[in-house]
Amino acid sequence: MKAARIHTYGGAEVLTIDDVEKPTITDEEVLVKVIASSINPLDWLLRSGELKDLIPVSFPHTLGWDFSGIIEKVGSKVTKYAVGDAIYSRPEVSRHGSHAEYIAVPAVDIAIKPRTVSFASAASLPIASITAWQALFEKGELKKGQRILIHGGAGSLGAIAVQLAKAQGAYVITTAAENDHEFVRSLGADEVIDFRKVRFQDVVSDVDVVLDTIGRQVQVDSYAVLKHKGILVAVNTYPDLELAKSYGVEARFLSIKPNGSHLKKVAEWVDNGRLRPIVGHEYSFEDIAQAYSLSESGAAKGKIVLHVSTP
């Protein structure tokens, strides 16, 4: 089979498409023919070596975090899934990556893909939806009628978070560049702040939850807009707990793991119209280098999806 692998850390030149053997599975895993896989910034950050202390891998390593596909083989202890099932997942990437024609993944980490969308759309969802779900409803404890500020509402994570928060019945405020305002309003945002022209802390106050997707000074400035005992959830920079305490608020950091049960809930929300995937760019597997270049440029809008094979 074909797999996009790295044999060392580095720039775009270290990513190669290799011929490798299909992975074998344990009794509790399934072997999946990958139909589509999406690209996340985490992919090229891992390739570059920036994440080597957080996510150690052995070389050669197959990249990729999100995918959708069709089960080709099931382990002897797998009872919930069968050969031919269309599934989607975010695997544990320290072992197998999804930028390959086949992947072995524990059955507990998968879910039946949303039936109302394509494989490409399903492949865009796992990391963003699991992160948004856990950030909003578990770490952030977001409830109906509460006010939330979501930083970066037009990004791949922010776009999912805006939709989930609105579906939960929250009042949603988000930051986005002016040319993305119509887009994030279409997702359900009640207020949109142009972060290039307006300091959000000058116009936002008394929110119950902040979802910080940016970090750095944005995180520091966010404490002041929270209500007393409000919650800031950070997903990429560990928050200063003492600073949060000085503002009378809580700060929590989210580190996600594969979670099939959450993906099952996300699929239900997609199929009942409460959540829509945002696919911005699609590439063939052979053009993976171009797809990575687009992701690294920061110019992508919506998820970047690779068409790995056909159903």
Results as ranks from 00 to 15, higher is better:
residue 26 T to G: 11
residue 174 T to P: 01
residue 119 F to T: 14
residue 134 Q to G: 10
residue 69 G to Y: 01
residue 137 F to D: 10
residue 306 L to G: 00
residue 170 A to V: 04
residue 60 P to F: 02
residue 293 S to L: 03
residue 182 E to M: 14
residue 260 G to I: 03
residue 241 L to A: 02
residue 158 G to V: 03
residue 194 D to M: 14
residue 114 P to W: 00
residue 178 E to R: 14
residue 193 I to C: 13
residue 189 A to L: 04
residue 104 A to M: 09
residue 215 G to V: 13
residue 184 V to G: 06
residue 187 L to C: 05
residue 147 R to V: 13
residue 78 V to N: 06
residue 41 P to Q: 09
residue 140 G to F: 00
residue 117 V to P: 03
residue 290 Q to L: 09
residue 189 A to D: 00
residue 173 I to H: 01
residue 58 S to C: 15
residue 202 D to R: 02
residue 284 S to I: 11
residue 35 I to G: 05
residue 273 G to H: 12
residue 283 Y to W: 05
residue 40 N to W: 00
residue 281 H to F: 00
residue 270 V to P: 02
residue 39 I to D: 07
residue 113 K to N: 04
residue 27 D to W: 14
residue 286 E to D: 06
residue 47 R to P: 07
residue 172 V to T: 07
residue 61 H to I: 10
residue 104 A to Y: 08
residue 271 D to C: 05
residue 226 L to V: 02
residue 173 I to N: 04
residue 165 A to W: 00
residue 39 I to T: 07
residue 3 A to R: 06
residue 185 R to P: 03
residue 248 G to K: 00
residue 59 F to H: 03
residue 26 T to N: 09
residue 241 L to G: 08
residue 269 W to I: 11
residue 272 N to K: 06
residue 181 H to W: 11
residue 15 L to W: 05
residue 254 L to N: 12
residue 74 V to S: 04
residue 19 D to C: 14
residue 117 V to H: 04
residue 298 G to N: 03
residue 82 A to S: 15
residue 282 E to F: 04
residue 188 G to Q: 08
residue 311 P to Y: 11
residue 23 P to H: 07
residue 121 S to W: 07
residue 188 G to I: 08
residue 78 V to K: 04
residue 88 Y to I: 15
residue 237 T to V: 15
residue 280 G to C: 15
residue 229 K to L: 07
residue 182 E to C: 10
residue 177 A to Q: 09
